[in-house]
Design a protein around this nucleic acid. Structure first.
Length: 799
RNA sequence: GGGCAAGUGGCGGAAUUGGUAUACGCGCUAGUCUUAGGAACUAGUUCUUCACGGAUUGAGGGUUCGAGUCCCUCCUUGCCCACCA
């Protein structure tokens, strides 16, 4: 070992191979050590492969996992692939290649890219959501959702069989219909986000500004048969559970706002005039106290008053058709007055005009609003546009209105039940059959997995139905032709890692009892209202049915900031600013790359990438390498070197700093303090002093979570057995600290005028006298009115 | 429109939470070595000034012996949600 440069090409691979051979990162499900489950959000392997932004979260999780392992935890740190979903299917349509093969290829690429980074995964637990052994259990969970309902009194899910008796007197068809109103996975007809280009329905969070998240195709509303998950039943628990987890406060707020719980009252306004069977307009309001200011009613164009009287209101239907399908897009308020129909104010009995408007959402509350232009800005805008009376509101205690009109307090939520069906091929088949009467039959557990059949074409068939509807045997068997959405497999994968090969359940009782939940979850903020909410929902359901042992899946969550291109734009092929991690690792080595990703800046900040900077951490790696050789030489000659006590003291401080920083996800400052410590080591060597190997080992141990390859190599050159990666973490020892002479500033009236060396042997008056002497020019001819001396920090003379 | 962040050298960013602003790294300048270039190493590098000195954390004000940090007003940028009754 006489090289000036660290030979990463040889050494990185050597250790990666050895770690895998010795299985040093394998987690034990029976260990007596304290457990620690550290999880990175698993990737969707796209054809483009990883860019340098992706590994940031993986490396951070890995650094954290490595620290915990060295601190003596039994660490579970797994990785896998989320491989069902649209892009693979789009690729299949364009290229005629089965998604199974294209995703397998992508997974292979990702696997290679991850391996060369040197991440400490327990690969024996690798999962892939498209494996039959995996999606068998996704289907199993779906069936559990299907045959459970939510008991709002007990606040938990219960078997549907418990309420079947209630409907025993009904015909099977009627009974099916009634029970469907309770099931947590249910079939319904609903207006959904339909994307013609993709030929499928999308969830709300997959639609951005009326366009599909993937591809940016137009999305319109369409009524279709769908499967839904009743996430709304869990809305309250999804809010209250946030108080028990260690997530970023702003992320909790986003989830709370997404669920959108609000408190208010429901109230019926009687209708007079030509309104067919409809007698009332039901509204929800959070401001019942403004009732006296109501001067009109506003309803959405899809309100039942219009729909059920389409013959009477055909003109209005035609007029409002052109308003656009997405009410969220509207900029200018529009309205049409209903003729010959009035609503009656419950107190004054005054006739109120009814308008069909574009600013009332059809899918929130009852799609109807009481218009209070005096108090509500939106109602005010509308009233001015349509010359509606604006009446001064007399606020009234809501309790007295409640009593007078017999109203009850109610809660409303913004969150909708989640559409759980895609008219697509590349997803988990829904394990249900429809018999000829339309009765639904569940598949039995022994018949799972219901495997995806082969198809000849991946295009959705004309009606917008899934390609499965074109498979004769499938349709003949009565199988459901919808498949599950992309987020099905990712809603429970963290449980599967606990027991990746369990044959009898999604996860065995023994494994869940041991691992409990994810202790530290690391991923991007973009999953806040999608995956993260769905996973919490499924986990709570699985808790209700006794499969999991905690209410929440993730005890703590940390979000990484996005890495931008060096032009400050999002990294993408479109801008030509994509940097590939493989190239960086090939040139600079995994350790330099890992350190640079962590050193770039605060973990949760968005940061521009600059490949130029890696040279800095690469130089650091080389300097550590050279220093290790010098120290080895010194220690060969003399076994009992006494290291400079100042340096030992500095090492102790860095032990504390690096430990605290990794715990607090302040990786950038941990790396910088390691750089400072290296500078200190080199200064000692330059001064022709010697360093004991054991003190240097403390330093390389602190470096190990960031740069595990070079530290393991040095560790073995120093003739240590096993891997440094499973050696004990250094302990901070306060007794080894020495007090230095420190320089403190001398201020006059708060302005810095000089400095002074102090140490513990000098008394306060000695220090102050000396300080006065140092700044005597500034003090000349002035009286010191006040002296402030903060020990070890500052002296301030006020004149 | 609402909510949440954040504004510090040429650049990415530090600052023990009110106590010497600009740590660490990139880049740049000079030097050593080299036929040369590169690499490596050494020294320097907030601005202004020949220098002594002076100024400086988006702008302005305030509290304090002392403010990047706390308070008020404003400006700018980023992200998320956007007619949720």
């Amino acid at each position: 070992m006489n090289n000036q440069f660290f030979n990463h090409k040889k050494i990185d691979g050597k250790w990666q191979k050895k770690w895998e051979q010795d299985q040093i990162y394998k987690a034990s499900n029976t260990s007596k050590k304290p457990k620690m489950y550290v999880l990175s959000m698993f990737p969707y392997p796209s054809g483009a492969g990883l860019h340098v932004g992706h590994p940031r979260g993986y490396i951070a999780a890995d650094v954290y996992a490595r620290l915990k392992r060295m601190q003596g935890f039994n660490v579970l740190h797994p990785m896998g692939y989320d491989a069902f979903g649209l892009p693979a299917e789009q690729y299949a349509i364009t290229n005629g290649i089965h998604p199974k093969y294209s995703t397998a290829k992508n997974v292979k690429t990702y696997q290679k890219q991850l391996e060369i980074i040197g991440l400490s995964y327990d690969w024996s637990r690798k999962i892939n959501t498209t494996d039959e052994d995996y999606y068998k259990w996704t289907q199993w969970i779906f069936l559990k959702l299907y045959n459970h309902y939510y008991d709002h009194k007990a606040k938990k899910a219960k078997p549907i069989s418990e309420i079947e008796g209630k409907f025993a007197h009904l015909s099977q068809k009627e009974r099916d219909t009634e029970l469907m109103k309770y099931r947590l996975a249910y079939e319904g007809y609903s207006e959904v986000n339909w994307c013609e280009e993709l030929g499928t329905v999308l969830a709300n969070d997959e639609v951005i500004d009326g366009k599909s998240e993937r591809g940016g195709h137009p999305v319109v509303k369409k009524v279709m048969r769908q499967w839904f998950l009743r996430i709304t039943d869990y809305a309250d628990r999804l809010i209250s559970g946030l108080d028990t987890v260690d997530f970023d406060e702003s992320l909790k707020t986003v989830q709370k706002n997404w669920i959108g719980k609000s408190f208010g009252h429901e109230l019926d306004f009687k209708i007079e005039g030509d309104s067919g069977d409809i007698e009332n307009i039901k509204i929800f309001t959070t401001r019942i106290d403004t009732l006296s200011g109501v001067t009109f009613m506003a309803i959405s164009k899809n309100h039942k008053l219009i729909i059920k009287n389409s013959d009477k209101f055909y003109k209005i239907i035609n007029q409002t058709k052109a308003w656009g399908d997405d009410e969220r897009d509207i900029k200018i308020k529009k309205g049409v007055l209903l003729e010959n129909v009035y609503a009656i104010h419950p107190d004054t009995k005054i006739k109120l005009p009814i308008f069909v408007t574009n600013y009332v959402l059809s899918d929130y509350g009852f799609g109807a609003v009481m218009g209070v232009p005096d108090m509500d800005e939106r109602d005010n805008d509308f009233a001015i546009l349509y010359s509606i009376e604006i009446k001064q509101t007399k606020l009234e205690e809501s309790e007295s209105i409640e009593k007078r009109l017999g109203l009850k307090k109610v809660f409303k939520y913004k969150i909708r039940d989640a559409v759980f069906a895609r008219q697509r091929y590349w997803g988990e088949p829904i394990p249900l059959k429809h018999d000829t009467d339309g009765h639904i039959i569940e598949l039995k557990e022994k018949d799972l997995p219901l495997k995806l059949p082969k198809v000849t074409s991946y295009e959705p068939i004309g009606s917008g139905e899934s390609p499965l509807a074109g498979v004769k045997s499938w349709v003949k068997g009565g199988y459901e032709t919808n498949t599950m959405p992309g987020w099905a497999g990712s809603s429970w994968y963290f449980l599967r890692y606990m027991d990746a090969h369990c044959k009898t359940a999604p996860v065995s009782k023994k494994a869940i009892d041991y691992w409990q939940q994810v202790d530290m979850y690391i991923g991007g903020r973009e999953h806040t209202t999608g995956h993260l909410l769905y996973a919490r929902f499924w986990h709570k359901f699985l808790y209700d049915i006794g499969l999991t042992v905690t209410e929440e899946p993730f005890k703590a969550l940390r979000n990484q900031g996005m890495i931008l291109g060096d032009d400050g734009q999002k990294m993408s092929k479109r801008w030509g600013n994509v940097v590939n991690p493989d190239d960086c690792i090939n040139i600079y080595g995994a350790d330099a790359f890992r350190m640079y990703e962590m050193f770039l800046g605060p973990f949760d900040s968005q940061l521009p990438w600059s490949t130029d900077g890696i040279i800095g951490t690469r130089r650091f790696v080389d300097r550590v390498w050279r220093l290790s050789q010098v120290i080895e030489e010194q220690n060969k000659k003399n076994k009992n070197i006494k290291t400079d006590i100042q340096l030992i003291s500095k090492i102790q401080k860095v032990i504390r700093k690096v430990t605290d920083d990794i715990d607090g996800f302040a990786f950038n400052t941990a790396v910088s303090s390691l750089m400072i410590l290296l500078n200190d080591f080199e200064e000692v060597i330059q001064n022709k002093k010697e360093i004991n190997q054991l003190d240097f080992i403390n330093f390389i141990k602190l470096l190990t979570p960031f740069a595990p390859h070079i530290t393991d190599e040095i560790w073995s050159v120093f003739k240590n057995k096993n891997s440094i990666n499973i050696s004990p973490w250094p302990k901070y020892d306060e007794t080894k600290l020495v007090e230095n002479n420190i320089k403190i500033g001398i201020q006059i009236n708060g302005k810095l005028r000089g400095d002074i060396e102090v140490n513990s042997t000098k008394s306060e008056s000695e220090i102050l006298d000396e300080a006065k002497y140092v700044v005597k020019n500034h003090l000349e001819g002035n009286v010191i009115k006040k002296t402030i001396y903060i020990k070890g920090k500052i002296i301030n003379f006020v004149i």
